[in-house]
C-alpha cells in the first residue's frame, strides 16, 4: 500500500509537469490553430541553457535565462514562421517539424553523450512522512507546477491578455475587428509556452532521472498524448490529460515487474496506449470541442 501511495504521488508530480508542457501546447493551438511539433525541442533548449549556466549564475539565475531563452525562441518561431506562412495551418504544423529537426540536431550535437545536471537545489534528498518516502524534487515539481498553472489560469480568466486570448480562440476575425492585435496574442502565446516548457525541463531532468541528455525530449514528448487525450483546444483537458498520463506512467513503470509478459520498459509506452484507448471512445479527447459542421 505504501508503495502504491508513493507511486501515486510520483505519478501526480510527473503528471503536473506534463500538464505544464501540455498547457503551453494547448495555448499555442488555441491562439494560432497550429500544433507545435517543436515543443519538445523548446523544452530541451530551456533545459540546456539552464544546465550550461547554473555553475556561473546559480540555479535561479540560470533558470531565469533558460526560461527567457526558450520564450524568445518561441516568439521568434512565431515571428519568422507563423506570421509569414500563407500555407494551411496543417502545413505550418509540418514546418514546425522542420524547426524541431534543426533545433534537435544542434542540441543533441552539443550534448553528445553527456548527462548534464541542471543544478537544482533539491538534488537527491528525500522526505519521509509516515513511512512514505518521496523525493524532494517530486514535491517541488507538484508545488511549482500548481503555482504556475494557478497563475496561468488566473491570468487567463481575469487579465485583458487572457480575455483577448480567449476571444481570439473563439473567433479570430471578429476579435481582430474589435481591435485585438492577433500578432501580439499569438506571439505571447508562443513565448508563454516556451517559458512553461523551460520550467518543466527542470523537473523532467531532476532526480530520480539522471539528468539532461539527448533523450530528455522523449520524456517531453509524452505531453503530446496528454494534450490530445484531454482535447487539443481545452485547458482543463491539458491538466487532466497530464495527470492521467503521469499517473499511468508511474504506476505501470512501478509495477512492471509484475507485467513482464508485456516486455521491458513498459512505463514509457503506457501513456500512448492510454491515449489510443481514449481516442477510440472519444475522438476529440475528453474535454475537446466536438467538430460539428452545419451545412
Amino acid at each position: 500500500m505504501t508503495r502504491f501511495i508513493e507511486l501515486l504521488i510520483n505519478g501526480l508530480s510527473l503528471g503536473s509537469v506534463y500538464a505544464l508542457i501540455a498547457l503551453g501546447f494547448v495555448v499555442i493551438f488555441r491562439a494560432t490553430e497550429v500544433v507545435n511539433f517543436a515543443h519538445a525541442s523548446l523544452l530541451l533548449l530551456g533545459g540546456y541553457v539552464t544546465a550550461v549556466l547554473h555553475a556561473d549564475l546559480g540555479f535561479v539565475g540560470a533558470l531565469a535565462v533558460g526560461v527567457l531563452a526558450a520564450a524568445a525562441v518561441g516568439a521568434l518561431i512565431e515571428l519568422v514562421l507563423l506570421r509569414r506562412a500563407k500555407a494551411p495551418r496543417q502545413v505550418v504544423a509540418i514546418a514546425t517539424i522542420g524547426i524541431d529537426i534543426v533545433l534537435m540536431a544542434e542540441l543533441s550535437r552539443r550534448l553528445g553523450t553527456q548527462v548534464l545536471s541542471l543544478g537544482d537545489p533539491w538534488r537527491e534528498k528525500v522526505v519521509t512522512i509516515g513511512g512514505i518516502t518521496v523525493a524532494q524534487t517530486r514535491i517541488a515539481a507538484l508545488v511549482v507546477a500548481a503555482i504556475l498553472i494557478g497563475l496561468f489560469l488566473l491570468a487567463f480568466k481575469y487579465t485583458s491578455w487572457g480575455v483577448s486570448m480567449r476571444a481570439v480562440a473563439e473567433d479570430s476575425e471578429t476579435s481582430a475587428l474589435m481591435g485585438i492585435r492577433l500578432g501580439r496574442i499569438s506571439m505571447s502565446a508562443w513565448a508563454v509556452a516556451g517559458a512553461l516548457a523551460a520550467v518543466a525541463a527542470v523537473f523532467i531532468t531532476a532526480f530520480p532521472t539522471p539528468g539532461l541528455d539527448r533523450t530528455s525530449s522523449i520524456a517531453a514528448l509524452k505531453a503530446f498524448p496528454a494534450a490530445i487525450l484531454g482535447g487539443l483546444d481545452s485547458v482543463t483537458g491539458a491538466l487532466v490529460g497530464g495527470l492521467l498520463i503521469g499517473v499511468t506512467e508511474a504506476l505501470v513503470g512501478g509495477y512492471q515487474n509484475d507485467l513482464t509478459f508485456l516486455g521491458r520498459g513498459l512505463g514509457d509506452v503506457a501513456p500512448y496506449v492510454v491515449m489510443i484507448a481514449i481516442l477510440l471512445v472519444r475522438p476529440s479527447g475528453l474535454f475537446g470541442t466536438r467538430e460539428v459542421s452545419r451545412v
Binding site: P225, I228, V269, M275, S284
Partner: peptide, 15 residues
C-alpha cells in the same frame, strides 16, 4: 482528422 491523427500516430512509433 489532420493533426489529431498526427499526434495519435506518434503512439505507433513508441509502441
Amino acid at each position: 482528422s489532420g493533426v489529431y491523427l498526427g499526434i495519435a500516430s506518434l503512439a505507433l512509433i513508441f509502441i
